[in-house]
Simulated scan of single mutants.
Amino acid sequence: MKLKDLYSFLKKDLQQIEDQLVQSVRSDQTLIHTAGVELLKAGGKRIRPVFVLLSAQFGTYNIQQIKKPAAALELIHMASLVHDDVVDDADMRRGRVTVKAKYDNKIAMYTGDFIFASALKLMTEIDIPGAHQILAQGIKEMCLGEIEQINEQYDTDQNIRKYFKRIKRKTALLIALSCQLGAITSKADVSLQKKLYEFGFCVGMAFQITDDILDFTASEKQLGKPAGSDLKQGNLTLPALYTIYRHPLMKEKLKLYYESKDAALLAELLKDIKRLGGIEYATDISDKYLKRAKQAAASLPETEARDSLLKVADFIAGRKF
Rank of each mutant, 00 (worst) to 15 (best):
F58V: 08
I63F: 03
Q64T: 04
Q65D: 08
I66Y: 01
K67L: 04
P69W: 08
A71Y: 08
L75V: 10
I76S: 08
H77G: 13
A79C: 03
A79H: 03
L81M: 07
V82F: 06
H83I: 12
H83A: 11
D84L: 11
V87M: 12
V87K: 11
D88P: 10
D89P: 06
R93M: 09
R96Y: 07
V97Y: 09
V97G: 07
V97K: 15
A101P: 09
A101N: 12
K102W: 03
K102I: 03
D104K: 03
D104Y: 01
I107V: 15
A108Y: 02
A108F: 01
M109E: 03
T111P: 05
T111V: 14
G112K: 06
G112P: 14
F114G: 07
I115Q: 03
A119I: 06
I126G: 05
D127C: 04
D127H: 06
I128V: 14
G130L: 14
H132G: 10
Q133P: 00
L135M: 12
K140A: 13
L144S: 10
G145N: 11
E148F: 00
Q149N: 10
N151M: 05
E152A: 08
Q153Y: 01
Y154Q: 05
D157W: 00
N159M: 04
Y163R: 14
Y163V: 15
K165N: 15
I167G: 14
R169M: 13
K170C: 11
T171K: 14
A176P: 12
L177Q: 12
G182A: 11
A183N: 05
I184Y: 00
S186K: 04
